[in-house]
Design a protein around this nucleic acid. Sequence first.
RNA 1: GGAUGGGUUCCCGAGCGGCCAAAGGGAGCGGACUGUAAAUCCGUUGUCACAGACUACGAUGGUUCGAAUCCAUCCCCAUCCA
Length: 409
Amino acid sequence: MKNAYDLLAERGYLKQCSHPEELRELMGKEKLTFYIGFDPTADSLHIGHYVALMTMAHMQRAGHKPIALLGAGTAAIADPSGKTDMRRLMSAEELDHNAACFQKQMARLLSFEGENAAIFVNNAKWLRELNFLDFMRDIGVYFSVNRMLAAECYRQRMERGLTFFEMGYMLMQSYDFLVLFREHGCCLQMGGDDQWSNILGGADLIRRKEQKPAYALTTALLATSEGKKMGKTEKGALWLDPNKTSVYDFYQYWRNVDDAEVANCLRLLTFLSLEEIAALTAPDADINEAKKKLALVLSAQVHGEEEAQKAALAAEALFGGGGSIEHMPTLRLTVAQIEETGLRVTDLLALGKLCASKSDARRTIEGGGVFMDDEKVADVYAVADKNKLREGIIFRKGKKSFLRVIENN
RNA sequence: GGAUGGGUUCCCGAGCGGCCAAAGGGAGCGGACUGUAAAUCCGUUGUCACAGACUACGAUGGUUCGAAUCCAUCCCCAUCCA
């Protein structure tokens, strides 16, 4: 079997590693236990987390044992890394709920059976009972403030201000690593590259306190086309929960990625072989086929084969002509709604969430961006034809947003 | 605890008694061009019963015919001092 380290490297996951050669050798001859931490600050994972999940899955397939750490304890403190502002603080109940949501979504990619079954741990278990004095004495002494301040992530925050509260984050994350090392023999922590100093802190702590080797490894962050991290507090997050980001939107997102990013996305987010990816993205290949593949495969991984097919069919129907319209976002009007809206186009668009509000709908119509059954809506006061409602009327905003409005019965 | 400067629409940021739903930029949305791409150009971006009304410039009160703009109290942030 291929060395997992090489596998991660050639797919482009690897960013930084504390001891590259040593770790690679170790991964070649032993089955390691490793962990990645996730802060449950929302009730769903988003695509940024997904890269981390992929690395876990690859590692597991290579025989290593993954631990997914749910940071309900650490999330009580805001991680200052890469954030321009402090996060909103969350209650313990909220965090526990979110952790449960994460767990469900992760289960899709990891295996919980066999020798190297994945396990979940929650650092609230040990962090919430920590005694402050003991912690400061046992752990605090190993951290140099000078060194912490020198780290890039803190330097950025220095300009806007940094509280002691936030600096504690690094100590706690390091402590997590130590606990997992002691309880599970976990000697490797992985994570996004923004976590580099935090992860390194833990590896150093273990090396100093336990006199045993521990490793830090970070993966490339998935960036948006603007080069910004897709974080949960930034805009443009793509959620894995279909209620927060519909399967159709999820599919469309990947169908529309930048040409330049397709190959990278395929490598990082799917399990397709490198050969296949190379073929798909070869200079003489049709880049749009590669995008379709990416959208379909990734949607299937996240939402299941059936849902992905539906999204693909809907897209085909809308853009390719032919295909089915069954899976388009649909608004079913009740009798009461028909009366209430009087079938005014502006009202329907707002009701169906195609536009943010009636005012927004009005403006979009004025800008010539709304179509009803492929005919441009010219009048802000336009009303839909009630007779067509039984068959369903297709509204389109711009080129990519559709809504099918149909009588509900 | 003290001093100083701040908190403005999705974000940054101008405005500092009426002409302010608030300049400019970013981001979003729509149009043209395309490949459901990028780049570019144009329009648009609080809500509604849309030539009008209502709600908004940290919070609450006040002054005024009239407040984002002035005053008071409070909350929060930054910088320096302790």
